[in-house]
């Protein structure tokens, strides 16, 4: 069982959350000419690293907020959690 520290609610079990995928992909800007390659990058291409991974989770059976979680994909250790709009350097 993963325990995820929701920045809004505190430590909760994985059962309350839904996974939302890689949080580092950025949608191309609106009202800008977008090449097929840029769309491809955004829609389909993923780094999927072994190790630290910044990802989205949805606290769907809790506060229903989307949050960002920094987690290790080989050990499942969770390092830090962020609110969805928090800036991450």
């Amino acid at each position: 069982m993963l325990y995820i520290n929701c920045p809004h609610c505190g430590l909760r079990s994985q059962n309350e959350f839904a996974y939302g995928g890689d949080a580092t992909v950025k949608r191309p800007e609106l009202n800008k000419e977008i090449s097929d390659q840029e769309w491809d990058n955004f829609v389909y291409l993923r780094k999927s690293p072994r190790g630290k991974h910044l990802e989205l989770w949805h606290h769907i059976s809790g506060c229903r907020q989307w949050i960002k979680v920094e987690r290790d994909t080989s050990t499942h250790e969770i390092f830090k959690t962020y609110t969805a709009n928090e800036a991450i350097e």
């Binding site: 996974y19 995928g21 890689d22 999927s48 987690r71 050990t75 499942h76």
Partner: peptide, 13 residues
Amino acid sequence: DGYNSYSQRGNLP
């Protein structure tokens, strides 16, 4: 299991 993982061990939920 539903999240990115390179671990060859599963999770109980």
